[in-house]
């Protein structure tokens, strides 16, 4: 088990490095001059002088060759210095620290809500496949899933903030639960369908497996049977986790925009569009760590549920 974990952690570090290098190269290769964009340049506008642009490039090391810049950044990042934003010159870590709590809270709440609703729905569906409830919930979830998140968000906003006046129009984490209920609900509703579906399928398969049959033959009660099935379904959740967690950190630009939530999603979007490379790399690092850690945790959970995975790894 220890060897399995060490190997996985090393692999994760390699993954992170790969992501950072890929983001760096991709964004550097994309056309668009960070100096021009950071100084607010637009065609036809009175622009920053060419000396100012040169000075900007010198300050941020943009005049150096790509590999050297990458090496410098990685070296500094290893010491937890993520550099300074091109746009306002402030440390990247500070800006992330300002936006991350709001995003984490909203998305964490959304994930809890989604899991709390979707897993029971999935289990119910698996235990009563083809029933009216199963089919109705399936249709409903599909419908929710097909709605663009910003449209869903606007609908909720119109209902709860404008018609009923229960929640503020703009998300405000300082108001507590009421301030973030709507963005969290929006994200949760969008995430319901995939979670419920994976649960339903995985539990369904576990229920029809020989071990479940033998359990039933032993007179196992439905609750125990379901718990065992859920445990057996653990590997299926690994992928889901890896798919849902990036959003936890990187946020959702669209939902954050609709509710005016100052989170990392908007920060990332603004940074990408203005080619604010240090900011994008910093956010990539943070979300990458979250993805890697959650995947590791899910894999470990899967390994605990089914030790053969570890054995297979060792051979």
């Amino acid at each position: 088990m220890a060897r399995f974990l060490v190997r996985r952690i090393l692999g994760s570090a390699a993954t992170l490095l790969g992501v950072l290098v890929a983001v760096f190269l991709l964004l550097s290769a994309a056309p668009g001059d960070p100096a021009r964009l950071a100084t607010g340049g637009a065609p036809g506008r009175r622009a920053a002088s060419s000396e100012a642009l040169e000075a900007f490039r010198a300050v941020h090391g943009l005049d150096r060759p790509l590999p050297a810049r990458l090496a410098t950044w990685l070296g500094a990042a290893a010491r937890l210095d993520l550099g300074r934003s091109f746009r306002d010159g402030r440390p990247v870590t500070r800006r992330i620290a300002e936006t991350l709590p709001a995003t984490l809270t909203v998305n964490g709440l959304a994930l809890l809500l989604a899991a709390g609703l979707a897993v029971p729905l999935g289990v119910w569906g698996a235990r009563h496949p083809g029933g009216t409830a199963d089919r109705v919930s399936g249709l409903l979830l599909d419908a929710l899933f097909s709605l663009p998140s910003f449209a869903l968000g606007l609908l909720l906003l119109l209902l709860f903030s404008v018609q009923l006046r229960w929640t503020p129009v703009f998300a405000d984490p300082s108001l507590g639960l009421r301030g973030i209920a709507l963005p969290a609900l929006t994200l949760a509703l969008v995430a319901l369908a995939p979670i419920a579906r994976v649960t339903r399928r995985a539990v369904g398969e576990a229920l029809s497996s020989p071990s479940a049959l033998s359990g039933r033959a032993r007179g196992e009660r439905p609750r125990e049977e379901t718990m065992r099935a859920l445990r057996r379904a653990a590997p299926a959740f690994t992928g889901l986790c890896a798919a849902l967690v990036p959003q936890l950190v990187a946020g959702s630009v669209l939902v954050e925009r609709v509710f005016g939530l100052p989170g990392t999603g908007q920060l990332l979007a603004d940074s990408v569009f203005s080619r604010d490379l240090p900011m994008v790399l910093g956010l990539t690092l943070v979300s990458g760590v979250a993805v890697v850690v959650s995947t590791l945790a899910a894999d470990a959970a899967a390994a605990v549920a089914d030790p053969r995975i570890v054995d297979g790894e060792g051979t």
Binding site: S161, V162, R165, V169, F170, R257, V258, G260, P262
Partner: peptide
């Protein structure tokens, strides 16, 4: 002063007095 990038949300804020 509040950052509200999305015009439709801002309009709802205007209507409700936020």
């Amino acid at each position: 002063l509040r950052v509200v990038p999305e015009s439709s949300s801002a309009f709802q804020g205007l209507v409700t007095g936020a």
